[in-house]
Structure formats: C-alpha cells, structure tokens
Nucleic acid binder design. Structure first.
Length: 541
RNA sequence: GCCCCUGUAGCUCAGCCGGACAGAGCAGCUGCCUUCUAAGCAGUUGGUCGCAGGUUCGAAUCCUGCCGGGGGCGCCA
C-alpha cells in the first residue's frame, strides 16, 4: 500500500477509534476513484460502519470529516461527502511530485520492489511438457506465464527456483521409441504412436540398436534439446531440469510407498498397491503400483513432490499445469496431507486451454497426431516479445483463443508495439536532450511542482500505482495485471507526449527540466514492468 | 453423474474479496503531421454485463437454480 493511502487508512481508523469503534483495516477500503472528480482517494468507511454506530452513512461521514479536518493527513487539502456517503479526499499535487522524486531517486532496481515474500523459498514448476516432441504454442503460452510469475515473485521478495520436470520414462518413451524404429524401417507409425514429421527427421539420424527403450530415450534427449532451444528463443531459462527417471532410480518412489504403507494408507491387491487417497478428500483411491509391478505416474509425482518439500526444503511449491491435468490436483493434495506436509503448501495453478483460430476454423491439436503448431514457428514469425506479451495479456483462468492470421498478418495491431513505442519515445526524448547538450541541474533545483498539466498528473498517478499493482499481481499470481498496467500507462504516455512537449522553444527551461524528470521516472516504471514480463525494451523503432 | 474454468460492445478481453453514470484494444465513422518518431493523438457509433430468483442502503461483482462453451474424472503420462 502506498504511503499516502496508508496514512489515510490509519487516520480513518483513528477517527473511528475516537468515536469508540475499533475497526479492522479490511473492513473498509481506501481506493482510487475511477473519476478524478471524486478526488485522489475515496473511502466507503462511513457506509459500511454506519450500522455499527446506529447512524446514517452521511451523518457518520460528516463526523469523520470533522475529525479529519482537525487532524489532517499529509497533503490533505479538502474532503467531500458524495453520493450515498463516500468520503472523497482531495490532495495537494505535491504528493505526486514527491512520489516522482522518490522514483527517480531509488531507480529501476528498487522502485516497485516489495518484501512481501520475506525471502521465503518457493519452487515454481512449469511447462514440464513431455519430451516426446517439440513445444507447441500452448506450451509456450503457459511457459511465458510461469516465467513472468517467477520474475514477479522475485520482485515481491520471494526466493524463487524455477524447475522443469522432465518426464523421461514410462510408456510414452517406449511409444516414442516404437514410432522412431517404425519410421527408420520405413513402416507406418501406428495409431497410438507419434506421427509428427519430427519423428521422421530423428529416425534419419538414429544409429542405435533396435530397442524401443534405447531408441525412445535417445529421441527424448533430442527432443529435450529442441525444447531448451525453443525456450531459449523465448528468453526462458530454468534453474533446474529435474528428471523423472532419476527419481525412480533413486529408490525414492519405493520409499514413499512404504511410508504411506506404514501409516496404513496402502492396500494391496495382488501385485497392485492402492493409496487410500479418499481419506484425504480425493474422489477415488489411486493406484501407485500397477499389476505388472511398475509404478504409476502418480507414485513418481508424489515422490517428486516429497523431494521438493522434505529433501530440498522448499516452504511453498507452485505447480502450473494445463487444465487437462486437473485430475491430478486432488490426488497430489491428498498425498501431501497423508505425508504430513500439508496440502496448503502446494499450490496448483491450472492454465486453461489455448486454442488457435485460423480463418474461421478452430484448430484441434494432438501431439501424437503431430498436427500442432510449433512454438518456434510463432516466435520466428512475431518475435519473443510479442509472443510473451500476447500470452500474458489474459488471465490464466480463461481459455485463450489465438487468431493466427491476425497475429501474423496484422502484427502492427499487437499491443507490444504500442508499449514498445512508448518506451522508444522516452528514449528518443533523452537522445534529443543529449544532442542539444541539455545538462540537468542538481536534482534539488528542479521544480517538480511545475507538473500540473492534466496529462502530467494522470501519468504520475498511474506511475504511483505500479508498486501496488506488482504486489497485487504477485499475491494473486496474475502477471497479466502487469500487462494491463503497461497498456494503460503507455496510453497515458502517448497522450502526454502529444500534448506536452518536453524540449521545445515554446517550453520554459524550468519546465523542460521537470518534464525530463517525469520522463526519467516513466522510463523507470515502464522498464520495471517490461522486465517483469521478460520483454526487452526498444530504444528506437 | 461428480470436479475445475468460463459466458460483459460486431471481435479479443479488462472490471468480479459489493459501491458513485459498465471500460480498453481491434473493426466502423470524423478530425490532427512547419517543433521530442502519426507503429501516435483527439472525437464518435456500439452493451437487457447468458437467463431467473435471493441477500443488501447498493449486485457485472456474493448465494441458489437453470441454459450455453472449454477441460477433467485411467493399472496414460
């Protein structure tokens, strides 16, 4: 919460206390009204608290205003009671000027940084696409989300480690091997196999033995290299690549099963072993060992999560899955409770499906069929920044619909250009400043109170909001809020740029200095936000 | 049948821990380049917030039911 907002909140609490009422801070809000006529800040406290005092909202509002007029907060100019009982705060614009001075003073590294996480160790697992083929657009979509969330949480003071879980074992690897060998022998790949063209390309390179496991592992490694390369193009790097096979080979999976058995949570049906997950809220019990004696995917996944919490000591784990893995959520949570770890420490975010629109056809994809659109094609076409920003513009809870033709053909309409252009204009102003040899005076001699044009004030207000947006986006795991802020802020900057010349014969030098300062602050803000999304700012366009 | 998302302008989406006349971009229509990049700015057209109840001083927002869309309920991974 900003200092000003905090001060108002505290003052309102004091006012209520003076009337003998103790209120919780979450009981009311101090917000920025959508309309500037309603002041810089506004509170609903009189409306929600009126019944506690047996008063009418407006008369309580009057009492509060009287108190606050006696005990004003910093920058307070006047108060207004409006509508059903809102208290509107009109402030001296110096609160914005002081805010700007602070932004410029602390700079890009510290502005909009929060200590919300207090250094808590968080593990963030995302993407984790099976190495049975190249990444498709949907994988890249949620990979961008995961990467942005990691950046966001780091900025909020969490100690984040990102991880890609490599599913490099099991039936799918055998199936991949079978498909590879079939291609090498010139046979058709069967219905259940991987039919994409990439299998053909790999088959041409494979010189190993006629063994489905060896061939499968070989192909998976090749695919993984391609996946790393695609992610690299998007600017995404993982701290850890964790192998599923390594978990199985370490004996950790047996360990988990016996741990659960010792708690009486496993029943045996011949060779099969069933985890009584319904006791922890799952909708049905789950097999951990199959009839043939192999572990199920879930068994390995539980061991993997045990490893995250207990072996590696993460305080919190966030998994980002596609909505098609929704079925795992209840089972994993059940297992965490069964193992005494606590399901509340495991946060599973589900990314809704991404579908692509080409012309009027909604395309359906399948990795096995091989009819997917590779992530790399999109990145090569529109660039990493646009790819990221596109996927980060909407909520994870909403099934995204991407219009391929539109994105490719009319990429000028992509919001990334709008935002980049704003940054490029800021940089351009500074280039002109340097070309003309304008040297900024000492900071203390710049009169920021000259910034009173509506465009300047609007820009300043939005800049001041960024720290709160960062905290909110981090707390709610919603990086798209940063993207929305960027669009809004860029729009305000374009308006300012159009209406308020910074360097011109028609502008007094004192005002030029103040505006240069504003531009510097804006540049800090936009660069912080872009960095959170992993988008590279452009100096010129 | 059960579980998770979702239904807001012609299209893509914000707003959803209740608040003041429902927002943006795109598409459409009108204007604006002799000064820091017109990939821009300004204006304008366009909405029974899926439907019906309920809670409330106040509901797009909360609750219930219904209708529609996506995903999931494997000894696949």
């Amino acid at each position: 919460m900003s200092d000003v907002r905090m001060a108002i909140t505290v003052a309102l609490l004091d006012a209520m206390e003076s009337f003998g009422v103790q209120l919780d801070r979450s009981f009311f809000v101090v917000e920025r009204p959508t309309r500037i006529e309603h002041g810089e800040f506004s509170s609903n406290i009189a409306m929600v608290a009126a019944s506690k005092l047996g008063e009418k909202p407006r008369s309580l509002a009057e009492k509060i205003c009287a108190y606050m007029t006696e005990n004003p907060v910093k920058y307070q100019q006047r108060l207004e009671i409006a509508g059903p009982g809102f208290i509107n705060f009109f402030l001296d614009f110096r609160y914005l000027h002081d805010g700007l001075a602070q932004v410029v003073t602390v700079g890009e590294d510290s502005f909009a940084r929060s200590n919300m996480g207090s250094g808590a160790r968080v593990q963030l697992e995302f993407c984790s696409a099976n190495p049975t083929g190249p990444l498709h657009v949907g994988n890249g979509w949620w990979a961008s989300y995961g990467d942005a969330l990691a950046r966001l949480l780091r900025r909020c003071g969490y100690d984040v480690s990102t991880e890609y879980y490599v599913n490099d074992t099991g039936g799918q690897i055998r199936r991949l091997g079978e498909s590879l060998l079939a291609r090498r022998a010139g046979r058709e790949v069967e219905e259940e196999g991987y039919q994409g063209e990439y299998v053909k390309d790999l088959a041409d390179l494979y010189e190993g033995p006629e063994d489905v496991v060896v061939a499968g592992k070989w192909a998976a490694e090749r695919n993984l290299e391609a996946i790393r390369a695609s992610l690299d193009k998007l600017g995404i790097n993982f701290d850890v690549w964790y192998s599923q096979a390594s978990i199985e080979e370490s004996g950790a999976v047996e360990g988990i099963v016996s741990m659960l058995a010792s708690r009486g949570l496993i029943i045996e049906e011949g060779a099969r072993k069933v985890f009584l997950s319904t006791r922890f809220g799952d909708s049905r019990d789950r097999y951990l060992v199959k009839e043939g004696g192999d572990f199920t995917y879930l068994a390995g996944d539980i061991a993997y999560h045990y490893n995250k919490f207990v072996v590696r000591g993460f305080q919190r784990v966030i998994d980002i899955f596609g909505a098609d893995h929704h079925g795992q959520v209840a089972s994993l949570h059940a297992a965490m409770d069964a193992l005494g770890i606590g399901s509340e420490r495991l946060e599973i975010l589900l990314g809704q499906m991404v579908s692509l629109l080409s012309g009027s056809d909604r395309l359906k994809f399948s990795k096995r069929k091989g009819n997917l659109i590779p992530l790399e094609d999109l990145v090569d076409e529109i660039g990493p920044s646009a790819t990221r920003l596109l996927s980060l513009s909407t909520s994870i809870d909403r099934a995204a619909l991407v219009d391929i033709e539109k994105v490719k053909a009319e990429s000028m309409d992509n919001p990334v250009y709008y935002i980049q252009y704003a940054h490029a204009r800021m940089a351009s102003i500074e280039r002109v400043r340097d070309r003309l040899g304008i040297v900024m005076p000492d900071f203390s001699r710049i009169d920021l109170s000259l910034l009173v044009h509506p465009r300047e004030l609007a820009l300043l207000r939005e800049l001041m909001v960024l720290p709160e947006v960062v905290e909110e986006a981090g707390a709610q795991r919603e990086p798209y809020k940063i993207a929305n802020w960027l669009k809004e802020f860029s729009g305000l900057f374009h308006s300012f740029y159009h209406d308020c010349y910074v360097i011109s014969d028609a502008v007094e030098m004192e005002l030029t200095y103040a505006r240069l300062c504003l531009v510097a602050g804006c540049k800090i803000g936009i660069r912080v936000a872009l960095s959170l999304l992993g988008v590279e700012p452009l100096e010129q366009m």
